[in-house]
């Protein structure tokens, strides 16, 4: 089972718009791959990753978010001025949950195709380089986004 590039883009667009507009209450816009706002140097980011399982499918959702975006989103959500020490675990948790929500929307697509999937527990890591090591998975769809002035990346891989 795999997604075409256009299916992957459509799913990504629907998922990112729904999740970010609801959680962060900011418009989100897809970027073309040649857009100058896509970082061309390595930038450190938080990368949330979760898998969607079915016996005929393994799909991985990776959401890449700059730390500053996560901190801004927490500020918008909870209107607080916590110290940086408490912002780091809160940022990790936020990215984990955003990734889970995006994976939920991707899983709904598979469900509409008759594949009832399980969603794994998301993990988050600091990624010093926004480039992805896609490992043995085939990268089907990488999309770039702007939300509240910050670049975000989303990859949906299927195997």
């Amino acid at each position: 089972m795999s997604l075409s590039e256009s299916e992957s883009r459509q799913i990504a667009e629907s998922a990112m718009c729904r999740v970010l507009q609801t959680v962060v209450n900011s418009p989100v816009m897809a970027l073309n791959t040649d857009d100058s706002r896509i970082p061309n140097n390595a930038i450190p980011c938080l990368e949330g990753s979760t898998s969607i399982y079915h016996h005929r499918l393994l799909c991985t959702v990776r959401l890449q978010v700059p730390q500053r975006f996560a901190e801004m989103a927490i500020g918008l959500l909870f209107d607080h001025g916590d110290s940086r020490a408490s912002k780091i675990p809160a940022s990790l948790d936020l990215v984990s949950e955003l990734c889970n929500m995006v994976a939920g929307k991707v899983s709904e697509f598979w469900s509409s195709q008759g594949l009832i999937c399980l969603i794994g527990i998301p993990t988050v890591r600091f990624n010093p380089d926004f480039k992805l090591d896609s490992g043995r998975n085939m990268e089907v769809g990488r999309t770039h986004w702007i939300c509240a002035g910050h670049w975000l990346g989303l990859v949906i891989e299927t195997e």
Partner: peptide, 9 residues
């Protein structure tokens, strides 16, 4: 609360 609203779930 679910991340996925598939009818089966």
């Amino acid at each position: 609360l679910t991340a996925d609203s598939s009818p089966e779930k």
